[in-house]
Design a protein around this nucleic acid. Structure first.
Lengths: 268, 268
DNA sequence: GTCAGTTTCTCAATTATTGGGATTACCGCC
DNA sequence: GGCGGTAATCCCAATAATTGAGAAACTGAC
């Protein structure tokens, strides 16, 4: 990684300081936290403010600004996963008393990007944009199971403590065995790992039948998922839908890159 | 504006190229559009990619990435306007057959940031994050009317053509007179300017009783808004709610800046 | 295997960025 | 309306970081 654009990264690093736990920062605090000099920090903040990524509050605080909302809207409009998956989520929520999600795998995080919920389903505390815990739940394992080995191992090592707690395995090899089984099945299930009394069923969304980019997940109240026949039907439904989405996504990506204004002008 | 952080701005400028009309870019096209040299552009793109703001598609395309979704989630969580206004939107949608919005005023744009919709109301094509047209509709005028004069004038000049079309006024002075009337009333109304057959009623949300930062807006089908008694009641309801929100917002902003980790450590 | 296209690297020149200190702007308060 | 204190910006020389040309490595496609 020899090519860097230092100041760009330092500017973006400012945005990383804003979290659910601390959504507001004073410039003083950012200076200490990030170690930038005062004029530099103010220059960076001004850049972010002028672009709308931050807003400054009268009494010396900063908060995320409307530009991120605008960008997310654009993102949601152009995201093929949403275009492809949304109606399937809605179909799931219409057929079963459940909450259905599509979540993205992104920088060792799991991020809900679309969801649909039936009236009778379990309440979900994961709206679009909220990162989910990486160590718990069906989604997590559905994705980990399909990662290439060399990505798997360091992640498993990091999470081993968590995995031991929920009984997945107490050594890296045990966890890998567990994941291998999930890979054979094509989907993962979990009971009460994220929310007590709620079961999750998740299958990965794969690009080129290899790399997981996301997962399709459905959660139900445990009491609605007891019948093993019904449960098996749901599992195969999730698996089928996830494969459909994967296939559609691949089609989408195989198409020609978009015509751009420039291409058009230059007559390509 | 002597203080700049050039490369930071150039990096953020890349994100500005992604629009609803063109949500995908090739590096070639960006190079031409922005005039950066190839290695520089790739450095910038790598920075944005590594941070999750962009994702690269296999065949030479870029699209916005999940980080913007994550940021918008944070933003929505920490936004006092949403915290203060959301339940009021829902109350409106429960009481009237309508769509109710809170929109932000941001860099000469109007951005929906929260909404609620009743089953019987008019369908809305403005979800969170979508910029609304600046020249049309009640929201636009509710905000313009409360801007300080020196901000008003250049905007009106830019939009004069549009204003003339919808009969608001054909000269700057005429438009200003119109806006002054809105300012006296406290709210603006519009019929069919954005969507045929839909009326809008909007009142500004003010900070310190001066600067408009947002507006509360309600849209109804024209047929539901014909009775002038009912209409007057709704208008005063919108006005009242917008004033409540303004007041709550001021309270919110008067409070002490947040304790930060740094402050706590240093014992402030 | 070869090929076309995309992405990253190397490295020296130079430019744009940085930061200390001073200055100005701003806000709340009296 | 003036005043005090803090926050934000400006100035400018030093320097460290960014830049861009060209080349090389990588990627998939055939």
């Amino acid at each position: 990684m020899t090519s860097v654009s230092g100041s760009g990264e330092r500017i973006l690093a400012i945005l990383d300081r804003f979290t659910e736990a601390q959504p507001e920062w004073t410039s003083e605090a950012l200076m200490v936290e990030l170690g930038y000099s005062r004029p530099t920090l103010y220059r960076y903040l001004k850049t972010l403010k002028d672009a709308g990524y931050l807003v400054s509050l009268p009494n010396a605080g900063f908060r995320l600004g409307p530009r991120v909302t605008e960008l997310d809207f654009l993102m949601s409009r152009s995201d093929p996963l949403i275009r492809i998956g949304q109606h399937r989520l809605e179909a799931l929520a219409a057929e079963y008393p459940c909450a259905a999600f599509i979540v993205r795998w992104y920088r060792r995080k799991i991020l809900c990007i679309a969801s649909s919920q039936s009236d009778m389903g379990p309440p979900s505390s994961y709206p679009r944009g909220r990162p989910m815990p990486l160590a718990r739940g069906a989604i997590s394992r559905a994705i980990l199971a399909f990662l290439p080995r060399r990505e798997q191992v360091p992640i498993i090592e990091d999470l081993l403590g968590e995995f031991a707690k929920i009984g997945i395995g107490s050594s890296v090899d045990e966890v890998i065995d567990e994941l291998r089984a999930i890979r054979r099945n094509g989907y993962a299930t979990a009971s009460g790992e994220v929310t007590p009394g709620v079961v999750g069923i998740a299958a990965p969304i794969l690009v080129a039948e290899r790399a997981p980019v996301a997962a399709l997940c459905m959660t139900m109240k445990a009491c609605d998922a007891e019948d093993s026949g019904a449960r098996a039907r749901i599992e195969s439904e999730i698996l089928r839908l996830s494969q459909e989405i994967s296939a559609d996504l691949c089609c989408e990506m195989m198409r020609q890159p978009p015509q751009t204004a420039v291409d058009v002008i230059s007559g390509k």
